[in-house]
Amino acid sequence: MYEPIRDKSVHSTVDGPNPDFPHRSREEELDIQLAGHLAALLAVTDELRATQASADLDTAAGRLAEQVSRLRGGRAPVRASTSGRRDRGTAALHRRAHALAGRALVVAASRADTAAAILAAERMDAHTAALEPELASR
């Protein structure tokens, strides 16, 4: 019913992995994934900072940028200007940030990165607290 595979795999050979194919370790893949989640959380945090002034958000943005830089080998994250983007309400931004912090926490825990896990858990708590008035009104 199905045609059999006729070509050899490009990923490995009988002699072992293909040396021409780039390979990353599990730790490197987790670093990339964690840096991505934290960078996305930083972008939402910057967007929240544009809508409401808060020392907590300023501190969090600095700590997030520091962790992203560490995970990316010293390269600073790109910080976009969000002055013109205020179409989403703060509650939606807090929900998005909470979800991103949760994803970052899962990856940080799987790679045993205590600093990133603590930061992600703190951000989850902060965004949950910001959403409590909305949840109480339901």
Rank of each mutant, 00 (worst) to 15 (best):
A116W: 01
G16T: 15
A115L: 09
M1G: 03
E3D: 09
G89E: 09
T114G: 02
E66P: 02
A50V: 04
A43H: 03
A92E: 13
A65Q: 13
R95F: 08
I118N: 04
T59D: 13
R96N: 11
R70Y: 10
A39E: 04
D46P: 10
R96C: 08
V14T: 10
V68G: 00
D125T: 05
L119Y: 00
A129Y: 15
R70L: 03
E29R: 03
R79M: 10
A80C: 08
R85D: 10
A129R: 15
R123G: 00
A97R: 02
M124E: 14
G73M: 14
I5Y: 07
E66G: 00
H98F: 08
E132N: 07
R85G: 02
D46C: 12
F21L: 14
A115I: 12
A112V: 07
D46Y: 11
E134M: 14
A39Y: 00
S81C: 09
D46R: 08
A116I: 06
R70K: 13
R123A: 00
R85V: 14
L30D: 09
T13P: 00
R103I: 05
T51G: 08
R79F: 02
T90R: 14
A40D: 09
E134N: 07
R75Q: 06
G74D: 08
M1P: 01
D15E: 10
A53N: 11
R103M: 11
A55N: 03
E66C: 04
E28M: 04
A117L: 03
L119E: 00
K8P: 14
L105R: 02
F21V: 14
H37C: 11
A60Y: 07
A43S: 10
P22K: 13
P77W: 02
A55F: 04
T82N: 12
Q52E: 12
R72C: 09
E66S: 06
L105K: 01
V78Q: 05
D58E: 11
E28I: 00
A35Q: 02
A120V: 12
A104I: 13
R75H: 07
S12V: 10
S12A: 04
D20Q: 05
V106S: 03
E122M: 02
L48C: 09
A99E: 15
A120I: 10
R111F: 01
A65M: 14
H98C: 01
S110M: 11
A120N: 02
G16C: 13
L30Y: 07
L131C: 11
F21T: 08
A108M: 05
D15P: 01
S137W: 11
T82L: 12
A39N: 07
V107H: 03
R24V: 15
Q67N: 05
T59F: 06
E47F: 06
G74H: 08
M124P: 05
E122V: 01
L131K: 04
D46M: 13
A40K: 01
R63K: 15
D20A: 11
L135T: 09
R138T: 10
R85E: 11
R86N: 08
L64F: 13
E29C: 10
R49N: 13
E47N: 11
A115V: 13
S9N: 04
R88W: 09
I118V: 07
S137A: 15
D7Q: 06
R79D: 14
G16S: 12
M124T: 12
L93W: 10
A39L: 02
G73H: 11
R26Q: 12
I32V: 13
I5A: 05
V78F: 05
A126Q: 08
A112E: 15
A116N: 03
S81F: 09
H127E: 12
V107E: 05
G73Y: 14
I118D: 09
